[in-house]
Design a protein around this nucleic acid. Structure first.
Length: 598
RNA sequence: GGGGGUGUAGUUCAGUUGGUUAGAACAUCGGCCUGUCACGCCGAAGGUCACGGGUUCGAGUCCCGUCAUCCUCGCCA
């Protein structure tokens, strides 16, 4: 049998059973140990590492001793059993080694800008510019393999649930709401632009109208927004799915086993059993101060406005009466004997968040109330507070006072900060929950106008009747998020498939019928020819892999990410284009004065 | 667009209230070494202290500006 040109085995699969066989391996020189008369090379490929031994009496030795790490070579030699003293139990292939008799240098490596065989950290700029080197390194290589396995598993699980995968266009039209679009100029239609989809939202709804029952796609989404640690600028991937003839509960039932299965299969820790807890939006804002609560954090916020209303603590009582402020309380268990610096530190933190400070009361072990605010509250009020917040002697409680939304947000941040300081966040667990009953509309503080708070395509709870009779700000939508450990994985909804409801819904947000038809014509028109009730969601793939890989930064789970300024340092994107191309596209540049970037 | 952190050898870092020739480790190059697996030993080379101004007798160190990068606010239907 003719031997393969490059290898008979991978660098990861030789074992004792292969002893005394002649083998051929190819890979990268991971590390060299040159003893003068004897030389070891750890040869690495995707599958693993094998120790290759070169004896000084061979020609191969003379070639090998001139090698530099990360060069690519092919070696041939006998697989031999290592003597007991030289076995390396840390390597899966550590019972054997390859006694090399022939070497072929396939590709010579220059001196590297970063080391592959160490855990040394390198600047992000270097890592991105030489991404192909970073991807050789163990951690990143592993993360990308994990990502591939997660996506393969998602596909299998979705198909098992009866979903079918369809592709939708990448060159499409600009979406009317949402983030800024990435635009692509049309050569054929001067002055017109395609937009890259922010999500396949309208297409998946059209697929439902087209009679396909359960759609999914590992869909690329493009949004021209600034990056964050957990948000890659430019593009990201969603598990986009949609189902026909379903209620909200049907959607939950379909996707819960998929997410649970994925987190269990790859997470290597405890996962919330489904059905996942469902928390109404208003409860989430009150109890956790966030619409993406981290349920690993045991602290619960309480509204204690009534305790302070009419009290002698005028800072709060006046704000409640005259500014419609509320007081929210965050418990800090077993902290009454913490040093003053603990409370000062949190106070300083709150100032950094833009709050005047963080008031607090501590309950000493003998039951008395201490702290800067305590003396302003009567014993009855103190007792009511203690009862309301289920406090025990030895606990402390912090207060924030502000208008409702700001107070909720600050309390939520304080809840997280306090839990971190006290190390109360449960470890080694994925806690998933649904946030449901999002408001359909919200008031824009700046303009005083009513706007859609989430997706304008969502079905209002109560339908047309609710839209016609209720205060818009009280209407809830069949709109839901799924949250894991405080990270929003996806947003979804039961869609509004009824044209008359859609006209009314947009009318409340200030859009006339003509404008709706102009901007949503395709979808709206489709709903006039027989549309099934439908709904779905779109969990973020990158964030799921981030959680599974336990990485705090999304770039660690993307093979070729852009930097925070939305540049690809490896491919040099974006880049200038030639005047000829611009002319062909009917585009004249009007650049800002201060352009120096290349 | 705003705020904050970081920027010293190829890399990771140290560098005292502002004071002699800016150091170490890893990598690189040269030499030695037959059982290492983060091999070891000897030696060499490698610096516009991000860039540009300023203060000072004297600046890696202090001040101002610029750039790069990360985090963050805005933004993310």
């Amino acid at each position: 049998m003719k031997k393969h040109m490059y290898r008979t085995h991978s660098c990861g699969n030789l074992r004792l059973v292969n002893e005394d066989s002649h083998t051929k391996l190819s890979g990268w020189v991971h590390r060299m140990r040159d003893h003068g008369g004897l030389l070891f090379i750890d040869l690495r490929d995707h599958y693993g590492m094998t120790q290759c031994v070169f004896n000084c009496e061979t020609d191969a030795f003379k070639v090998a001793e001139k090698l530099r790490v990360e060069s690519v070579i092919t070696v041939e030699g006998m697989v031999v059993k290592r003597s007991p003293a030289t076995v390396n139990p840390k390597m899966p292939t550590g019972d054997i080694e390859v006694l090399v008799d022939h070497i072929h240098v396939i590709s010579v490596a220059e001196v590297l800008p970063m080391t592959i065989n160490s855990n040394t950290e390198f600047p992000e700029e270097t890592r991105l510019r030489y991404r192909f080197l970073d991807l050789r390194r163990e951690k990143l290589h592993h993360n990308i393999v994990l990502r591939s396995k997660v996506i393969a598993s998602i596909r299998k699980r979705m198909i098992d649930q009866g979903f079918m995968e369809f592709q939708t266009p990448i060159l499409t039209s600009s979406s009317p709401e949402g983030a800024r679009d990435y635009l692509v100029p049309s050569r054929v239609h001067p002055g017109s632009f395609y937009a890259l989809p922010q999500a396949p939202q309208q297409f998946k709804q059209l697929l439902m109208v087209s009679g396909f029952d359960r759609y999914f796609q590992i869909a690329p989404c493009f949004r021209d927004e600034d990056g964050r640690a957990d948000r890659s600028p430019g593009e990201f991937y969603q598990l986009d799915f949609e189902m026909a003839f379903v209620t909200q509960e049907d959607v939950f039932h379909a996707i819960e086993p998929v997410l649970y299965g994925i987190f269990l299969e790859f997470g290597n820790r405890h996962v919330s059993q489904y059905p996942f807890v469902q928390i109404p939006y208003h409860d989430a804002m009150l109890k956790y101060g966030s619409d993406k609560p981290d349920l690993r954090n045991p602290l619960i916020i309480k509204d204690v406005s009534e305790i302070f209303l009419g009290s002698d603590f005028s800072v709060f009582s006046k704000a409640i009466e005259t500014e419609k402020s509320v007081v929210r309380a965050i418990p800090a268990p077993k902290t009454s004997n913490h040093p003053r610096s603990f409370f000062d530190k949190l106070n300083d933190w709150a100032r950094g968040e833009g709050a005047p400070g963080l008031g607090y009361i501590t309950f000493t072990e003998d039951g008395s109330a201490k702290g800067p605010i305590a003396k302003f509250l009567s014993p009855e009020r103190i007792e009511a507070l203690k009862k309301m917040c289920s406090l025990e002697d030895g606990d402390s409680i912090f207060f924030v006072c502000n208008k409702k939304d700001a107070a909720a947000k600050l309390a939520g941040n304080a809840r997280r900060k306090i839990a971190e300081e006290l190390d109360l966040i449960e470890k080694d667990v994925f806690k998933l929950c649904w946030i449901v009953d999002f408001p359909m509309y919200e008031l824009n503080e700046d303009t005083g106008k009513v706007e859609f708070s989430h997706n304008p395509f969502s079905m209002p709870q109560g339908g047309l009747k609710a839209l016609e009779t209720m205060n818009p700000l009280d209407i809830k939508a069949y709109q839901y998020d799924i949250v894991c450990n405080g990270i929003e994985l996806s947003s979804g909804a039961i869609r509004n498939h009824l044209p008359e409801v859609m006209y009314k819904a947009f009318e409340i947000a200030g859009y006339g019928a003509e404008e709706v038809e102009e901007r949503f014509g395709g979808l709206l028109n489709a709903f006039k020819f027989g549309a099934p009730p439908h709904g779905g969601s779109a969990p973020g793939i990158d964030r799921i892999v981030m959680l599974l890989a336990d990485e705090p930064n999304i770039r660690e789970v993307i093979a070729f990410p852009m930097n925070q300024n939305a540049q690809d340092l490896l491919m040099q994107a974006p880049s200038a284009i030639t005047p000829e191309r611009l002319k062909e596209l009917h585009i004249k540049l009007d650049l800002p004065k201060k352009v120096v970037k290349e």
